[in-house]
Design a protein around this nucleic acid. Sequence first.
DNA 1: ACACGAAATCCAATATCATGGATTTCGCGA
DNA 2: TCGCGAAATCCATGATATTGGATTTCGTGT
Lengths: 211, 211
Amino acid sequence: MAVASRHVATSTKVTMNQPQPVNPEVADAISQLLCHRVRDLRQQNGWSLDQLGTASGVSRSMLSQIERNEANPTLAVTARIAQAFGLTIGELVEAPRKSTGIHVIRGDDPAHLYRSDEDCEIRTLSPLPLEKDVEFYQLKLKPGRSLKSDAHFQKTREFITVEQGKIRITSSGETRDLAKGDSASYRADVPHSIENRGKGEALTFLVVIYE
Amino acid sequence: MAVASRHVATSTKVTMNQPQPVNPEVADAISQLLCHRVRDLRQQNGWSLDQLGTASGVSRSMLSQIERNEANPTLAVTARIAQAFGLTIGELVEAPRKSTGIHVIRGDDPAHLYRSDEDCEIRTLSPLPLEKDVEFYQLKLKPGRSLKSDAHFQKTREFITVEQGKIRITSSGETRDLAKGDSASYRADVPHSIENRGKGEALTFLVVIYE
DNA sequence: ACACGAAATCCAATATCATGGATTTCGCGA
DNA sequence: TCGCGAAATCCATGATATTGGATTTCGTGT
């Protein structure tokens, strides 16, 4: 289960025959972000360069150079700095996503009715456009119908909970039956499906997690 | 809204007065992982060192050294390699989390009844222990009651959907009312609350996302 | 077995990272 | 304003990253 844009985008990334030239500005942007990030984190914690240096095993001079964007650290140095802040390298070097206020989606908003056909009705419960790392859906399956999905990007997971009816989850050739109140988590980076095994409509809430 | 273990753990990371010495084995582990990762990805894509080198702007020699764990690349070089594979640095250098099979949580499993008191009932819908980046809950609020939460780790977000009743969301001093079928997303790295504004019990499903 | 082209590794040179000690700057109290 | 200690930056040096061309290895076809 995923929205088309995510699926298409990831297929493009993985299956191309030829590698595509990288955008040289990205590495520059990362350096620019890192210098501010290290300085901000250090100041938020109230640490001097000396303290951070002692903890991370990176010289004060190097830390100073990084904060002034005067040096490009190796991965090992970056890892030690990240660790001293209790972060992973990804958490240290990647741009934080901004979130502003409360974003409301009304139950009758037609823009969030992603799909409505003889099999099922899917409503998106998280904000559009769906280009984030976590997606939230309401899925209603008609009796005897199912929703089948191909494998998605590596490490994609799903959480599902059943609010009404009975369903069967299949993932990695494994199958489980769920009733009202039951939940499940499973891999979605392999073919998987959700099937209505009850007599009436099944109502579920589905969380798709891309890593 | 968060489970105590996550809250405590993140507070420890951010608010300590003194930085703690890093574990030197982490940087070694990253190098060890990176060399296999670059080789695997390159071979999966069917690219030669020359092709990857042309795309990434990193020399064949350097790529070869990285794959043999004979060099420790700078962040800029790492960024260019990651980008050529269509990944972020984090995605390239961090160990993928393994997910095995379908993990089922039954609706009547007492281990997942996180809280049940005069205010509300909370059930965890994602697997225990709750040390992952995304958590899923069912939250039932009694009439006139609310659930108040302190700010959590930076960049924490929440998605919520209302299956029954009326609620009011407050985050960043902002307030929104939701009815059945409505959803919302908002920051949880600031004080926030969920309040039942209807006459009967409110039933919601809540996704907590830690970045 | 040999020939050939592609792919990977070696090699030497240059550039840059990373360091520890020296020097300068900063912030605060008297 | 001055003095002082802490914090940040400068400096020279050694180590390592990074490169492009040369050489070796590999895989395949005849």
